[in-house]
Amino acid sequence: MSTTPTRPPTVRQPTVRTQEEIAARVKALEAIMIEKGIMTTEAVDRLAEIYENEVGPQLGAAVVAKAWTDPDFRERLLRDGTATCRELGIGGLQGEDMVVVENTDTVHNVIVCTLCSCYPWPVLGLPPNWYKGPQYRSRIVREPRKVLREDFGLDLPESVEVRVWDSSSEMRYWVLPLRPAGTEGMDEQALAALVTRDSMIGTGVVPAP
């Protein structure tokens, strides 16, 4: 080490890196942090495995299906999303304080984080790229009906009120979608299989079986 470490300028020259350059740089950072006792590859792999295989929208779908079949649970879920999800062992990082908002025949809810990428991980897993990208974040608060119609194929009549929840604090909002018609005889497990990630973001609805 020949020079004293100096703080790099906050803004580097605006050159977009290739995937190879990013991969090499991230690997360099990882290598240093492994040597410094901050990271391990086994912990990186474990964390990735959790969000690839264990924590994802199937958990939110189970909560939704229970809310559709158990009116007391539904009422508790809308009153205290965090505690009620905990009843099913669901909760944790990026969902420490959750608020569930309910779609009805006259109200449609949709979530966004215009400032970064806040998303209820314990029930939906990690967000898709489009949720974190500039297009969705810029437009969904200004022209939600147009985005839902043109980008997600969801055409809402003007009589339905559209509520956009911008997750600017550490509260994590997500949507209890409408139960589709024709599902009266279905049990919780079969109902959960119908519930999509996008229906809990609000960029979709649960399709009838």
Binding site: E30, A43, V44, G56, L126
Partner: peptide, 23 residues
């Protein structure tokens, strides 16, 4: 512009994303 929706999107698109997620 339009929202770039990717069908059947994986949780991570490359190995380096897993490491960055751990960061």
């Amino acid at each position: 512009g339009p929202v770039p929706v990717e069908e059947e999107e994986p949780v991570f698109h490359a190995e380096w994303e897993k490491a960055a997620f751990g960061m």
